[in-house]
């Protein structure tokens, strides 16, 4: 075991750093389209309080900034937005999603965005991306953490 580990650990580490940018890839190329197109198509779930809405927009902006892109917002019901996400007409949906949200089967949810809702009672703000878009999910999820952590 130990000689194996000695070889495997550095090999894995170097692989990790080598592939940090391009790996994993998105089967439907969301990240690539965002980088090339320069904008992120964001759906904001309608019905949020003004303060929630500010948090949701801030989250979407930081996701877009990280890709040197600008966000394009639209607002509608969660169902409508997730249908659009499925069709590839949106890159990201932001809204209050519970941990055991029923949408979980249709989209990949991120961790809660770090800023707290001021009412504190509702479901936390999360991002939702298309299933299987693993590179994009990692990039979006990175923005859920406060900077510098």
């Amino acid at each position: 075991m130990s000689p194996n580990l000695k070889i495997c650990a550095p090999a894995t580490a170097s692989l990790l750093s080598l592939c940090a940018c391009a790996f994993p890839r998105d089967p439907a190329n969301t990240t690539q389209q965002v980088l090339e197109g320069g904008h992120v198509r964001v759906g904001l779930v309608a019905g949020a309080s003004p303060s929630e809405r500010t948090i949701m927009e801030a989250f979407a902006r930081s996701v877009a900034e990280a890709q040197n892109a600008t966000p394009q917002f639209e607002s509608a019901s969660a169902k409508h937005l997730i249908d659009e996400l499925d069709e590839g007409d949106l890159d990201l949906v932001v809204g209050p999603f519970a941990k055991k949200s029923p949408w979980k089967k249709r989209v990949a949810l991120t961790r809660p965005y770090h800023a707290k809702n001021d009412n504190g009672a509702g479901a936390p703000i999360r991002g939702a991306v298309r299933l299987g878009e693993n590179r994009w999910l990692i990039d979006v999820e990175r923005e859920t953490r406060p900077r510098g952590s």
Partner: peptide, 24 residues
């Protein structure tokens, strides 16, 4: 045609693709 979602895990202060943990 379900696309498997394999997201990041937070390990040792870094976000690592869970796929690497699976391979290990």
């Amino acid at each position: 045609q379900e696309h498997p979602t394999i997201g990041p895990v937070h390990l040792f202060g870094k976000d690592i693709w869970l796929g690497w943990a699976m391979v290990a």
